[in-house]
Design a protein around this nucleic acid. Sequence first.
RNA 1: GGUGGCGUGUCCGAGCGGCCGAAGGAGCACGCCUCGAAAGCGUGUGACGGUGCAAGCCGUCCGUGGGUUCAAAUCCCACCGCCACCGCCA
Length: 418
Amino acid sequence: MIDLKLLRDDPERVRASQRARGDDPALVDALLAADEARRAAVTAADNLRAAQKEVSAAVRSATPDERPAVLEKAKALAAAVKEAEAVQAVAEEALRAAHLAVPNLVHPAVPPGGESDYVVLSQTGEVPSYPFDVRDHLAVGEILKAIDTERGAKVSGSRFAFLTGPGALLELALVNMAMARAVAAGFIPMIAPALVRPEAMEGTGFLGAHSAEVYRLADDDLYLVGTSEVPLAAYHSGEVLDDLPRRYAGFSSCFRREAGSHGKDTRGIIRVHQFDKVEMFSYVALEDAEAEHERLLEQEKAFLSDLELPFRTIDVAAGDLGSSASRKFDNEAWLPSQERWLELTSTSNCTDFQARRLGIRHRTAGGPQVAATLNGTMCAVSRTIALLLEVHQRADGSVHVPKALRPFLGGLEEITAP
RNA sequence: GGUGGCGUGUCCGAGCGGCCGAAGGAGCACGCCUCGAAAGCGUGUGACGGUGCAAGCCGUCCGUGGGUUCAAAUCCCACCGCCACCGCCA
């Protein structure tokens, strides 16, 4: 939710943000109107309530013969209050709906336009060339007996896989490495629930445009999270925090229906319904949000560098931002089998948008203030494994293990076919 | 799943249907005392919304949502959560 005070002060800024996203600026004017309607309703109801309180107090002190008349008056006012409160409730609900429809303000530096209008900020490492025919990650994984998608499909359906032998060990190594780095950088490690209540899902904005992506357990009214951003953001919902920043690194399984991606990335484990992830999540003061965003980005870049994966960093265009994000950086690693860049990690600055929705504030000298929230992927495991297998493959099908990962694999320097 | 108990401000904790935004503590802040501190004493100390240039004024909030009533922290209902015991279970 955007700040309504800001909206009243500078509606044109919000309209401009809408245009940058390719969204409808009329939503802004609808919100302004709803805001005004609510204030009118609140004022009317407040005045009636004040009058009712007064008369109500007079009931006690009334003499027996004035009493019936006062009671009569009180009853009439009570009815009027009830009516005014109904009007207020309707106005408040209308405001809420209009409020939810307006996405976060886009940061001024964000490139305008759609999905393809991103700006490349940097490239780290060189695009590799191979003196042999490269295999894709699934082919490598099958040679090494690291991935079994056929049995994944037999047991659970398409887009499910077993990680076997070295694949399973690779996952544990990556998770441990990601956690170790997060801890060293001051993040509190967390094992987060993967099932959450509707409020957590709503509060983080995942039941809006992306609700078709989300698994729901209808019998229990619980949702399977697509990222531990959800439990980590909801963790402090409704709280006033004494001290910021708070930095968490959450590990959880992630579940995605991939409803709109039929036929896309169907081979291997690049796009699966279930994977594990280590996610960084920061709560900071609003004025520190940009610096924190850089910090998260640096963590992500260092992690990928240490895995010796070539990647580029892009500034995602306004039209491709999620509704909560004011700015988003993606790190895209080189996928040799397809000779293209593939999104591997991502970090979003949600400013105070998500926190306002979840009621997360912190104490300042000037009273409680809405916090800012940011999230960033440390390691999305399945996709990282896919890239390690592809990028570090050798002609004989064996795979080089990056130095930084070796301590987490018992010193193993290469993975070879069994 | 069953039975019983409980949810009040930063925390503990009291609260007869109206005089309760709410006693009393603790904590915290400031002041006095002190060479300094502790102790002691005094004062202050919630959030949100509306309105106003402002001081202020008005309204809402006692887990959440409904209901009864002129009037609800207080009575009724539902839900959520916590605790204890029993059953089941990794």
